[in-house]
């Protein structure tokens, strides 16, 4: 069980990440809001508790690494990094502007704190495996956290990579599968049903748990567990809502990419601010 104060702190961080991602996307007028919101809570647990990193030295070799393989959720990652001081918060408003360090999809050569370039779905999974193997061969105890989308798992490369992780016993790899149940064209069950992720990951040889991915305490408990079992890679199936944290976005059926009007931005930001005040007040 997590201390109440720590839980509130992580909940508040998740709200701040949502506000930051929303601000970045609104500055542009539209963006991948749904899938950014669904992973805000896991990002809060990773950067608020689980991962070791140094915002002043983003390339510190001993750090834990994050691969956001669903690279279009970049704004959520950028929001997290901005809140944690990897770069100035105001820079969020440069999202996708000419010459920006914050492109729509994550780029390790542009953004301080982004550990791997992603965007072509599936590719981050193999990269994360190589990174985790590299940490082991280097003799470092750093871990690699891999966020994979459920829609993304339509890609065959994901399953090649999962087989590799299991075959090579990469127990320093934690796969965080964002089961938000929607992809660009609609509900995954309608577009391309993938079956039971827990059964699949277990069959692939992963230490697997499923938790409410929008509950920071449940996510933190699951990640705590991944520190313990050795000898096989870990999977946490994050049962999430696409658009979580902004009810109107969650309630919009086709919420993969959305325009955000000034009026919506003001209203949603006000809601998030009041949540934050309640948590931090």
């Amino acid at each position: 069980m997590m201390e109440a104060a720590k839980k509130k702190e992580l909940q508040a961080l998740a709200v701040r990440i949502r506000m930051a991602a929303l601000e970045a996307i609104h500055s542009l007028g539209s963006g991948h809001l749904g899938g950014a919101m669904s992973i805000a809570d896991v990002l809060a647990v990773l950067y608020g508790k689980e991962m070791k990193y140094n915002a002043a030295d983003p390339k510190w070799p001993e750090r834990d690494k994050l691969v956001c393989s669903k690279g279009h959720a970049g704004p959520a990652v950028y929001g997290t990094l901005a809140v944690k001081g990897f770069f100035p918060y105001e820079e969020l408003k440069t999202l996708n502007r000419p010459g920006t360090r914050l492109p729509s999809h994550c780029d390790r050569n542009k953004t301080p704190g982004v550990d791997m370039t992603t965007g072509s779905l599936g590719q981050g999974t193999s990269l994360a495996c190589g990174m985790a193997l590299g940490e082991k061969l280097r003799g470092r105890d750093a871990r690699v956290f891999l966020i994979v989308g459920d829609g993304e798992s339509n890609e065959g490369q994901v399953w090649e990579a999962l087989a590799f992780a299991s075959a090579k016993k990469l127990d320093n790899l934690v796969v965080l599968l964002d089961w938000n149940k929607r992809q660009l064209d609609g509900w995954t069950e309608d577009v391309y049903p993938m079956g039971d992720y827990v059964a699949k990951l277990e069959a692939f040889g992963f230490d697997t748990v499923k938790v409410n991915g929008n509950d920071v305490e449940a996510v933190a408990d699951a990640l705590e567990r991944t520190r313990q079992a050795a000898g096989k890679p870990h999977a946490v199936i994050l049962d999430t809502v696409k658009g979580a944290g902004i009810q109107e976005v969650a309630d919009t059926a086709m919420n993969h990419s959305l325009p955000v009007s000034d009026e919506q931005f003001e209203r949603w930001t006000a809601q998030l601010k009041s949540e934050l005040a309640a948590l931090e007040g």
Binding site: M116, S126, L127, G130, L133, Q157, E160, A163, F164
Partner: peptide, 21 residues
């Protein structure tokens, strides 16, 4: 590292290893 008959993954793994130096 024998990556099995999975060339796309192998190249991705190689790139991840490159990022680790």
């Amino acid at each position: 590292i024998n990556c099995g008959i999975a060339e796309a993954n192998m190249v991705g793994v190689a790139c991840g290893l490159a990022s680790a130096g």
